[in-house]
Design a protein around this nucleic acid. Structure first.
Lengths: 200, 200
DNA sequence: GAATAATGCGATCTTTTATTCGTATTCAAT
DNA sequence: ATTGAATACGAATAAAAGATCGCATTATTC
């Protein structure tokens, strides 16, 4: 961001721009998210946009930064609210909360999430992955389940990715034979079967 | 494709174009894969390109079609070669074979695969997913393992996606603490823990 | 209420890229 | 060898979109 907005109006303009970008992406896809379009949607001129974003991509980054921050907060809240419970409870609640949030506003964030790969460069995804991995490890330890310590990191990596991408994939084109709840239950089961102590 | 190539030279030109597109994408990314660039790389003029592809996207489609067909062939071969063996054996061998192929030619297809989402529209991915699902189901039945029939379809869906995206994700940025073989073993374990009969 | 800084504007410039089309070349059939 | 069809060419066209910049408006400060 080339300049920090100082006055109140410019701060709110930046917020408006980020929101407008989010909505344009959600509604008409990343291709449609041109500077002109975003600016118009925000009720602002292109010139103003470039006052606070050096390049078009910087707006995209701002969008994804906001999403990531929001998910991180959800993770924190769920860790707190399921403290002392099982890993299963944590995963189930986390899924529910994230999905509910993404579904809000006519699936706004669900739609944006489809462009994750193009928006991200994997930096933000990694950030989230690390947070989730940490949480999972905490719960496993808390359960004093006999975990196979040697393979745990890989398993957590695999599980975290499995959950993330199954969600994204399902969001982008849900097979009509599979209900959302069914998917969620299965993902929770996956954690149970895969992360708890394995048959030697 | 607007016209079918009839003569030998035009057929080979179409092949060259598809290969050139593949290489340009792999080496410099999808952004760089402009019509001009692809044509030049194939040693052909843009005009010739448009003789056989109506739109730029049609070349991309041809690229991904070729890849999908190749993977389908690998699946068939592995099904054949592990016939009568366990599901685990099938999965392990499939992973090995696909990865080996993608690594060929300096990771050519591994690099292209990173753009899957932008190339695909999920049509080809679904095609592959269905083939894999079918294969997994066959092996499970063959093992006469007591599978929980009610949840099997979801589980297979989840597993197939888990494997696919863990591969793609790992390919795009392997965490340096995780070795490829470790990942593969874990994915195989995942199938074992998750697809075989679950603790009621 | 001047003076100065911050913000906002949008027509304009510039670059990039897809696509076309008239012409030149090569092939295949007779 | 001749002729017509297929193929190849690439300069030229046209549209799209990112980014800029000089000027207008609004806020802040003293």
């Amino acid at each position: 961001m080339r300049k920090q907005p100082r006055q109140a109006r410019s701060k709110s303009m930046v917020r408006d721009l980020i929101e407008a970008a989010t909505r344009v992406i959600a509604e008409d896809g990343l291709e449609a998210a041109t500077t002109a379009r975003i600016a118009r949607r925000a009720g602002v001129s292109v010139g103003s946009l470039y006052q606070y974003f050096d390049r078009k991509e910087d707006i995209y980054l701002a969008v994804i930064e906001a999403i990531t921050a929001r998910i991180e907060r959800i993770i924190d809240e769920v860790m707190e609210s399921t403290k002392g419970e099982t890993l299963t409870a944590f995963v189930a609640e986390l899924l529910r909360r994230i999905w509910d949030w993404m579904e809000e506003d006519n699936g706004l964030y669900l739609r944006v999430a489809l462009y994750w790969n193009r928006l991200d460069d994997l930096g933000y995804l990694t950030r989230l992955e690390q947070k989730v991995s940490y949480a999972l490890a905490m719960f496993l330890v808390g359960e004093r389940a006999s975990v196979r310590r040697d393979t745990l990191p890989v398993r957590i990596y695999v599980f975290a990715n499995a959950v993330t991408f199954n969600l994204l994939r399902y969001a982008s084109s849900p097979p009509n034979v599979i209900e959302k709840d069914e998917l969620f239950t299965s993902l929770v089961d996956l954690g149970e079967a895969y992360l708890h102590d394995a048959p030697s």
